[in-house]
Design a protein around this nucleic acid. Sequence first.
DNA 1: CTGTTAGCGCCTTCAT
DNA 2: ATGAAGGCGCTAACAG
Lengths: 340, 340
Amino acid sequence: MRRKTPSAPTIHDVAKKAGVSISTVSRVITRNVPVSDEVAARVEAAMKELKYVPRAAARNLATRRTKTIGLLLSEIQGDFFAPLLAGIESVTDEHGYDLLISTAGRRGPHDELPPSLGNHNTDGLLVFAGALTGDGIAHGHSLGLPLVLIHQSPPAGLGIPCVTIENKAATHHLVAHLIEVHHRQRIVLLRGLPHNEDAYWREMGYREALTTRGLPLDPALVAPGDFSRQVARKSITQLLSDGVAFDAVFAGDDEAAIGTLAALRDAGKRVPEEVAVVGFDDQRLAAVLTPPLTTVHAPTEEVGARAARKLIRLIRTGEAEALTLLPSQLVIRQSCGCPG
Amino acid sequence: MRRKTPSAPTIHDVAKKAGVSISTVSRVITRNVPVSDEVAARVEAAMKELKYVPRAAARNLATRRTKTIGLLLSEIQGDFFAPLLAGIESVTDEHGYDLLISTAGRRGPHDELPPSLGNHNTDGLLVFAGALTGDGIAHGHSLGLPLVLIHQSPPAGLGIPCVTIENKAATHHLVAHLIEVHHRQRIVLLRGLPHNEDAYWREMGYREALTTRGLPLDPALVAPGDFSRQVARKSITQLLSDGVAFDAVFAGDDEAAIGTLAALRDAGKRVPEEVAVVGFDDQRLAAVLTPPLTTVHAPTEEVGARAARKLIRLIRTGEAEALTLLPSQLVIRQSCGCPG
DNA sequence: CTGTTAGCGCCTTCAT
DNA sequence: ATGAAGGCGCTAACAG
């Protein structure tokens, strides 16, 4: 049934079978130039019969465009990643772009683009926070590669577009809720990762909420959280054994909130009666925790979609607005002390 | 500072600047053929200075290989997806392959390959369950494209390799645990999606566990679960209001277990005292539920890694073993009735 | 070890 | 509306 690997049909095979020139075949493929209906039909029949598929490499080479977008990630992990990718994929798909994925790997942020995503192998790049250093970003930019940053602002001076979420105001509201509604006074802050911008702004929101309410910024209440269950758990356990008094915890993100809940449970502290706990992100887990977690909803899928849309515009028109800041929304559940 | 878009440097520019021929440059790029150290150094300096990046399209065209693997998904969603992709990415990365991602979209399984992943735009394809119909798979196969199926077996007759997990025996053990250790007699089965092979084998495991223990297969205890929270919740609520008596639920997967837990909570039933609940998959959520969910751990990351490794071998050698069946492991927590 | 020369498969003016 | 011919940037024999 099977011949001897008849090495995939080319445009020439189609042309011959349809009795036309290759340029005509090319025209019915690209649909850029009018072709008589009759001829078009013949060509299409030939393509179908031969199971012809245009070879991307050849088109790319001739066109000097790849019709693919690269996504550079720091790592594939957590609840964060799926919605982000879903958002991106929906718009790249809609616009006929392919999606090439690559991770920085465990070595941390990279100083250069990975070769595969380098210039001309991709029409543009989506760069997620932590995947590239400032130098790495500058490198890509200097190559003339269209770039859009996600959850990370560009190195000073480079006008690279960026899309991220509102962290500070949302955190401020969240902490203010703890203070005003639940009368908490000693609120622990679990810090996020060192160079993470989200972490930075959340901390700013926390401080602002306290100071504007006349509460002291007690350094004893600040501990590492690193956006991870383990670190958060350790921090809270430590605080407890150090005898630090507190009646609430802003964990930095939902993962850290889970660690916090675990530490508190271990210590026999009741949540939210004795200690209120709040997170950030509103991951899929948040609603099913016990008690259900009060947190801030981060519109991650929307971030992905916006970033992709922006990159495509940048590729097509050469410009895109510098910053897209998506609003985040308070999600009140029960871990703050609100009734179910 | 910036010239007039000096249209990216090519291999010729590098050759000229290094004072060698383009073949020499090509050789230092591919490293297939020995080149004198001195010359190599000169060439590399030139490449660096020019910020030269080889154009993938040109290489692909000349080589007739793309060095990229396609991943065809039904949808990007859930806890399932991140570990799967992480597993795949780690091995494609290790072997120098790029990863092109595409989803079937909401229209359900497709009868043909998406053009971008079609022949010659990819060296091979990883196809996840539900992304392609049998015809779609056959189509890809007839094109001579190396294919590896994930969580789905090939259409009869086609020797397409596949990697999936052990469902039946694991479910059997899980249900047997309910029967023998916790003395449950009336165990609800929440069915999975209709054409899902995992769902099929899990149901077989459930039946086998009951029949080998002399328990009746009461049709009243079987209801739709669809691997989703909502459907599961509705099913359980319905069962309850119908007055069907049961003392345990095998939810089909962890998502459905969450829905089950919610329905039971709404009805004031205590878990696991009155009703034991078990899931399947051991998602990230499982351990933080209340009570912590007894389930079966599905080695999803490993599945991804194995599939990718198998595809690469298939691409390189033309063959790969037909079936990889990864073992799944019982994870006993508290929702079955075991002590914390 | 290095240079020369064909293509790889398709798009795109340029004529017709 | 269609055909002819050059070129996209690189690799891979083939000579030397």
